[in-house]
Design a binder for these strands. Sequence first.
DNA 1: TTGATTTAGGACTAAGATTGTCCTGTTGAT
DNA 2: ATCAACAGGACAATCTTAGTCCTAAATCAA
Lengths: 153, 153
Amino acid sequence: MQITRAGEYGVLGLLHLARRGPARMALIDDISRDEEIPKSFLAKIFQSLVKAGVVQSYRGTGGGFALTRKPSDITVLEVIEAIEGKIALQRCQLEVPDCEHMEGCALCGLFERAQDRVRAVFAGTTLADLITTEATLPAKTRHIRKLQPAAFK
Amino acid sequence: MQITRAGEYGVLGLLHLARRGPARMALIDDISRDEEIPKSFLAKIFQSLVKAGVVQSYRGTGGGFALTRKPSDITVLEVIEAIEGKIALQRCQLEVPDCEHMEGCALCGLFERAQDRVRAVFAGTTLADLITTEATLPAKTRHIRKLQPAAFK
DNA sequence: TTGATTTAGGACTAAGATTGTCCTGTTGAT
DNA sequence: ATCAACAGGACAATCTTAGTCCTAAATCAA
C-alpha cells in the first residue's frame, strides 16, 4: 500500500500542531490554509486521528484540535496507520489477507520482511524528530511554508 | 507504490521458469495454467520482462520463454521494477516527483529512507534464494502448486 | 507456400481506490 | 437563541489496477 495524500496530509497537519507548542489549539481552517491542504479533506483525516487518540477535538467557539501527547511520543507509523490502516506492501500482508497461497510461502515471506522494514523506519521517527530535521534544512527547502502560523485567537 | 499483482505474477512466472532448470523453455499457456495466472495478463507482463532482458522470447512452434541468466543472478527488485517501474513509497519519490514541496523536506526524506529499505530487501533476494526458501517450507504451504511442470515438448 | 503456432503490441473496459466535495447533524460557548 | 466549530454520511470525479480482445509479426513444419 502506497502512502497516500491522506497519510501525508495527516502528518503535515500534526506537525503544524506540534510546532505551536504544548496545548495550543488550531482550527482545521488555519491548518488547511497554512499547509495548503483541502479543508474538508483534512477535516475527514483529523476525524481518524481523533479516533486514534492522537489529537483531541474541541467544538464550538474557541475550539479546534490539540495534540494529546508530546510530539516526541507520536510516531509517524502511528499517524499513518491511524489514517490508512496497517501498512501492507502487498495483498498477502493485508489485515484480512487476500492471497490464494498458503501462509508461509517464500514470496509472501519476502514481502513481509520488506514491509517490516518500512514500518520500523516509521515507528522509529516521531513528530519531534521531523521538526528537528526541518531545522537543519536550508530554509528554502523546508516543507513548512509558514514557521509562524497565525496566533491562536 | 504497492506491489501489484502484475509484479507478483511476474516473480511467480519467473520462478516457474527457474524451477525448470537452465535453458528450458515454457509457454505462456503452461505458466499461466500451472501458476493460475490469467493468460493474457501474464503475456503482457512477460513483454516487460523481455524488454528488461530478464527473459528471452521465441515465437512459433516450439517457442516460448526462457531465462537469459541464472536464477541466482536475477533479483526480485529487478523483476518488480521491470514490471511496475521504480518502487516509490510516495509521490515525492516518483521518477518524476509529484510533490509541491521543495526537495529535501523532512517528510520526503523519511519516505526516501523507508523506500531505500524496501528496495534493499528486494535487491538482496534472487530467484534462486526464493526457490531455496521454498524447499525449506512444509510442502502444503508452498507457493508452488506443481513442482513438476509439464515437460518441455 | 500455406497454415499452425506462439509471442508483440495496442485499444479497450470493468472494478476499485483515491481524493476530494457537500450537506446535515451535534456540541459548546456566549 | 445563535454562532462557531467539529462529526459523519452520501456523493462524485479521476486515476489505477487488472484484466480482455483483436490484429500483426515471427517461426516452424508439412
